[in-house]
C-alpha cells in the first residue's frame, strides 16, 4: 500500500485515493475536427511504461482534488506529486527507466 503525497494534504495512505490513469492526456480542443484514429487514440490508448510514469490520482476521501504523481512502475517509488495543470517536474526520466 503506497504513501501518496497529496499536494494539498500531505502524505496519506493509498486507500484515501482513486487512480486516474496516465496524466497529461489533453482532451482535443475541437473533438469534431479529430479523425477517428486520433479520437480513438485519445479515448482508449494509454502508455504502459516500465519506469517513471506520470499519472493522475484524486484524493477521493480527502480534499477531493485531482493531481499528478511521478511514480516508478517497477519500484513503486513516488518521485514527485504536483497540481493538475502544472508542468511535470524536471526528472531525469531516462536514467530512472
Amino acid at each position: 500500500m503506497l504513501v501518496i503525497p497529496c499536494p494539498h494534504c500531505g502524505p496519506r495512505c493509498e486507500i484515501e485515493f482513486s487512480y486516474g490513469g496516465q496524466a497529461h492526456i489533453a482532451r482535443p480542443q475541437d473533438p469534431a475536427a479529430a479523425d477517428d484514429a486520433t479520437w480513438a487514440d485519445y479515448v482508449f490508448m494509454r502508455d504502459n511504461t516500465k519506469g517513471v510514469f506520470l499519472e493522475r490520482w484524486v484524493h477521493s476521501h480527502g480534499c477531493r482534488q485531482w493531481f499528478n504523481v511521478a511514480r516508478h512502475t517497477v519500484t513503486y517509488e513516488i518521485l514527485a506529486s504536483y497540481e493538475t495543470g502544472a508542468a511535470p517536474p524536471n526528472l531525469d526520466l531516462e536514467s530512472q527507466a
Binding site: 484524486v58 477521493s60 482534488q65 493538475t84
Partner: peptide, 13 residues
C-alpha cells in the same frame, strides 16, 4: 459527482 468534479478540475478549470 466524481465524474463531474473530474472534468471541472482537469479539463475545464
Amino acid at each position: 459527482l466524481a465524474h463531474l468534479e473530474e472534468y471541472l478540475q482537469t479539463e475545464w478549470p
